[in-house]
Deep mutational scan, measured.
Amino acid sequence: PDLGLTQLFADPNLIENLKKNPKTSEMMKDPQLVAKLIGYKQNPQAIGQDLFTDPRLMTIMATLMGVDL
């Protein structure tokens, strides 16, 4: 199971919303991170391994779920 990750990354406004959010806007200036996020739309399971190697993803996930870290 993808634990709902498919829906989190399926939002067509995902990148724009993250660019507008004060907690994630600075991160979204990294083209490699943006490319990763776009890739998760097609393969949400890929985030599982990346969560352990890129701490920014935890902040992004929390933001998408509405959790304040």
Rank of each mutant, 00 (worst) to 15 (best):
residue 1 P to R: 01
residue 2 D to G: 10
residue 2 D to R: 01
residue 3 L to G: 13
residue 3 L to F: 14
residue 3 L to T: 15
residue 4 G to P: 15
residue 4 G to S: 14
residue 4 G to A: 14
residue 5 L to Q: 07
residue 5 L to I: 13
residue 6 T to N: 12
residue 6 T to D: 13
residue 6 T to V: 13
residue 7 Q to N: 12
residue 8 L to A: 11
residue 9 F to T: 02
residue 9 F to C: 04
residue 9 F to H: 02
residue 10 A to V: 07
residue 10 A to L: 14
residue 12 P to G: 06
residue 12 P to F: 03
residue 13 N to V: 04
residue 13 N to G: 08
residue 13 N to Q: 14
residue 13 N to E: 11
residue 14 L to Q: 03
residue 15 I to E: 02
residue 15 I to M: 08
residue 15 I to Y: 03
residue 15 I to F: 08
residue 16 E to D: 11
residue 16 E to H: 08
residue 16 E to I: 06
residue 17 N to H: 10
residue 17 N to D: 11
residue 17 N to T: 14
residue 18 L to H: 00
residue 19 K to T: 14
residue 19 K to D: 03
residue 19 K to C: 08
residue 20 K to S: 15
residue 21 N to Q: 04
residue 21 N to R: 03
residue 22 P to F: 05
residue 22 P to L: 06
residue 22 P to S: 07
residue 22 P to T: 04
residue 22 P to Q: 05
residue 23 K to W: 06
residue 23 K to P: 04
residue 23 K to G: 09
residue 23 K to Q: 15
residue 24 T to F: 07
residue 25 S to H: 13
residue 25 S to F: 07
residue 25 S to V: 08
residue 25 S to A: 14
residue 26 E to L: 06
residue 26 E to C: 05
residue 26 E to T: 07
residue 27 M to R: 00
residue 27 M to A: 06
residue 28 M to Y: 01
residue 28 M to N: 00
residue 28 M to A: 02
residue 28 M to S: 01
residue 28 M to P: 00
residue 29 K to N: 13
residue 29 K to L: 08
residue 30 D to K: 01
residue 30 D to Q: 02
residue 31 P to M: 07
residue 31 P to S: 11
residue 32 Q to F: 14
residue 32 Q to N: 11
residue 32 Q to H: 09
residue 32 Q to R: 08
residue 32 Q to D: 12
residue 33 L to P: 00
residue 33 L to S: 01
residue 33 L to C: 02
residue 34 V to F: 03
residue 34 V to W: 02
residue 34 V to Y: 04
residue 34 V to N: 03
residue 35 A to I: 09
residue 35 A to T: 11
residue 35 A to Y: 06
residue 35 A to R: 08
residue 36 K to I: 14
residue 36 K to C: 05
residue 36 K to T: 10
residue 38 I to N: 12
residue 38 I to D: 08
residue 38 I to L: 14
residue 38 I to S: 09
residue 39 G to K: 13
residue 40 Y to V: 04
residue 40 Y to N: 02
residue 40 Y to Q: 01
residue 41 K to R: 12
residue 41 K to N: 14
residue 41 K to C: 08
residue 41 K to I: 11
residue 42 Q to H: 15
residue 44 P to I: 09
residue 44 P to Q: 06
residue 44 P to Y: 06
residue 45 Q to S: 15
residue 45 Q to A: 12
residue 45 Q to I: 11
residue 46 A to K: 09
residue 47 I to Y: 11
residue 47 I to E: 04
residue 48 G to H: 15
residue 50 D to F: 04
residue 50 D to Q: 05
residue 51 L to A: 10
residue 51 L to S: 13
residue 52 F to C: 09
residue 52 F to R: 15
residue 52 F to Y: 14
residue 52 F to L: 15
residue 52 F to Q: 14
residue 52 F to H: 12
residue 53 T to Q: 12
residue 53 T to Y: 06
residue 54 D to V: 01
residue 54 D to A: 00
residue 55 P to A: 09
residue 56 R to W: 04
residue 57 L to Y: 04
residue 57 L to P: 00
residue 58 M to R: 10
residue 58 M to E: 10
residue 58 M to F: 09
residue 58 M to C: 11
residue 58 M to H: 13
residue 59 T to N: 07
residue 59 T to I: 15
residue 59 T to D: 04
residue 60 I to C: 02
residue 60 I to W: 02
residue 61 M to F: 12
residue 61 M to R: 04
residue 63 T to Q: 08
residue 63 T to K: 02
residue 63 T to S: 08
residue 64 L to Q: 03
residue 65 M to T: 12
residue 66 G to V: 07
residue 66 G to H: 13
residue 66 G to K: 06
residue 66 G to I: 07
residue 67 V to L: 15
residue 67 V to C: 10
residue 68 D to T: 02
residue 68 D to S: 04
residue 69 L to N: 15
residue 69 L to W: 02
residue 69 L to H: 15
